Amino acid sequence: MELFIIDEHTENYLSLQVGGESNRGSLSGLAGWVLIGGLGVGVYSLLQTAEPTGLYIMLGICLPMFLAPFLWETLRPLPLPILFNRRTREVYFDHDGELFHTPWDSITAVANEFQLIGPQIGSIRNASLEIRVSKFEEPETALMISLGAPFGKSLALQKGFWEYLRSYMNNGPYFDEHGNHSESDVFIKSQLAVRFKMSDSFKNTLAQIKQAKKEAGGRNYLSGSDVAMLILEPMFYPWARIQERTYNIAKRRSRNRWPSLVTERLKANGPTTRLVDLE
């Protein structure tokens, strides 16, 4: 199942990333990492000379370098996600500020498998998964929207992803490995944990080293790459955390761009009427 574009899986709705903005915050993370390093140099200068001049200089240089990309990445709106609303059983999509939707119970989905063939790339298998949505109050205007990029995916994988969405809408919000309803979110968390996060790299490396130690039975189990990771990953941890924090801030700010017809239906006590009923 392709879960990496799932941004939020809640009791009321599920959202899918669009527009390839998962790396939003990388510049802020890099600048924040430089800021921390600069402050470290400034503090070292302060301890050596007992004069705050060096600290002020590093702060004056590095702080603007961080604030500029941070403000640019948080104030620039993220593309709105594709929303699957369990409460009203419908799907929402924003296209250039215009609201599109479709009822889940009559949704149309299409999966296609195709290959790209070239002398340099050889043959690459691809599979697309698309759904049909209609413009609010203009149902004659329709779009086919892609649920994630098709490149490098198989038809079986896209079917598995569709089954995840179907299980959420029909049996959710939580379900087990067979798609049946479950009161526990353990299986869902295990699936969403597959999504790679840079801030988890050090924790994953420690787990791999612990497993290697167990399998080695007391022999030397540390490789050169393990030693390098143990040194480098803690150094780059602030970069990853700042990047993730910046992305979350930008995501929260972007939610306000949904029309009130959508936002009120995402709430636990919001209306349950569908947009098609209002039409």
Score class of each variant (00 low, 15 high):
L63W: 08
A31S: 15
T246P: 03
L155E: 13
E51K: 12
G40P: 04
E244Y: 03
A207I: 09
F196N: 09
Q17A: 11
I36D: 02
F4H: 14
A207D: 13
P69N: 06
L266I: 04
S223I: 01
G172N: 04
K203D: 12
S128Q: 03
D7Y: 00
C62I: 03
R219Q: 14
D226R: 05
P52T: 08
K135C: 06
P69H: 09
G54L: 10
L14D: 06
E140V: 06
E140Q: 14
W33M: 11
Q120V: 14
P271S: 10
P64M: 10
R86A: 10
L67Y: 09
L275S: 05
M65I: 15
Q191R: 15
K213Q: 14
G25N: 04
M144C: 00
P119A: 11
E233V: 01
R241Y: 07
G19A: 06
V91Q: 02
T88H: 03
G38S: 14
P52H: 11
C62Y: 04
L67G: 09
M235T: 10
L266S: 02
W72A: 13
S190K: 15
N256D: 10
P81I: 09
I117V: 15
Q120Y: 07
G224W: 05
F175L: 09
R125I: 09
S199E: 14
E73K: 08
S254G: 07
F93A: 06
L232H: 01
G270T: 06
F175G: 08
L3E: 01
W239N: 03
L63K: 08
L99H: 02
P234Q: 09
W104Q: 06
G122S: 06
Y174N: 15
Y168T: 09
L147D: 01
T102R: 06
E279F: 01
E183V: 11
G172Y: 03
S28C: 07
I231R: 07
A193R: 15
P271T: 07
L157K: 13
F93V: 03
S167N: 12
S146C: 00
D105S: 09
P271E: 05
L143T: 08
H181G: 09
P150C: 05
L59M: 14
T10I: 00
G60Y: 06
G42K: 07
G160N: 08
G54D: 07
F236V: 13
R255L: 06
I209H: 03
L35M: 14
E130S: 14
P173A: 08
N85S: 15
L71N: 05
Q48D: 11
P79A: 04
T10N: 13
A68G: 05
L230S: 05
N170C: 07
H9Y: 12
G25D: 04
K251G: 00
F196E: 11
E137N: 14
P79R: 11
A228Q: 09
K203P: 00
E137Y: 04
S225V: 05
V41C: 08
L266N: 01
I145P: 02
E140S: 13
V194E: 14
E244W: 02
N204W: 12
W162P: 00
I5F: 03
E137D: 11
F136I: 00
Q120P: 02
F100S: 01
A156N: 10
R219K: 15
S128Y: 03
L30T: 12
F93M: 00
T102I: 11
Q115A: 12
F161W: 01
R255Y: 04
